[in-house]
Amino acid sequence: MLKIILFCSSGSSTSMLIGRIEEAAKARGIEVAVDAYPEAQMEKYVEEADVVLLGPQVKFILPKAKKICSEKGVPVDVINPVVYGMMDGEKVLEQALSLAKK
C-alpha cells in the first residue's frame, strides 16, 4: 500500500482531492492511503508517508519540505496548480506513483 500525504495551508482544501485520488487508485486496482494535513504539521506526519505532495498554495515551503522529507527518505514535490485546480486525482496519483519509484 502506498501512503500519500498531502500538505496544504490548512489541510481542508485537499479533502475533495483525496477522494479523487482514492477513486483513481481503486479504478486501477492500486491500494493507497491518502491523508491531508496543514503544512505546519509536516514534521509530525512525514514519517508516515511514502510520498509527500504539497498543494500549490504552499509551494514556497518546498525547500523546507525537501530538507524535512530527505532526512526521512521520503520524496516530495508540488502538485501542478492546474491539476490541483481541476482536482484531477488521476494525475496526482500518477505524480505520486512516479515519485515513489525514484
Rank of each mutant, 00 (worst) to 15 (best):
M1T: 12
K3L: 01
I5G: 01
L6T: 09
C8I: 05
C8K: 05
C8M: 06
S9F: 03
S10H: 11
S10A: 15
S10D: 08
G11I: 10
S12L: 13
S12I: 14
S12W: 01
S12C: 00
S12E: 08
S15L: 09
M16H: 06
L17W: 01
I18T: 04
G19Q: 10
R20A: 12
E23P: 01
E23Y: 04
E23G: 03
A24P: 04
A27M: 08
R28L: 12
R28W: 07
I30C: 07
I30Y: 05
E31F: 12
V32T: 11
V34P: 04
V34N: 04
A36E: 06
P38Y: 14
P38G: 13
E39Y: 14
E39Q: 13
E39K: 08
A40F: 03
Q41M: 14
M42K: 05
M42D: 09
Y45T: 00
V46Y: 03
V46C: 02
E48P: 07
E48M: 11
E48N: 14
A49H: 01
D50H: 14
V51C: 05
L54A: 11
L54P: 03
L54Y: 13
G55V: 08
Q57G: 05
V58C: 08
V58I: 15
V58K: 08
V58Y: 07
V58W: 07
K59Y: 09
K59I: 02
K59F: 07
F60A: 00
I61F: 11
I61A: 11
L62N: 02
P63I: 06
P63D: 10
K64D: 13
A65K: 01
A65D: 10
K66R: 15
K66I: 03
K67W: 04
I68T: 14
C69Q: 01
C69Y: 00
S70A: 11
V74L: 02
V74C: 02
P75N: 13
P75F: 10
V78P: 07
I79H: 05
I79C: 07
I79N: 05
N80Q: 04
V82N: 06
V82I: 14
M87D: 00
G89H: 07
E90L: 13
K91R: 15
L93V: 08
L93Y: 08
L93A: 05
L93F: 06
E94Y: 02
E94K: 08
S98Q: 13
S98R: 15
L99P: 00
L99C: 10
L99W: 06
A100Y: 14
A100N: 12
A100P: 00
A100W: 12
K101E: 15
K101R: 15
K101Q: 15
K101W: 00
K101Y: 02
K102D: 08
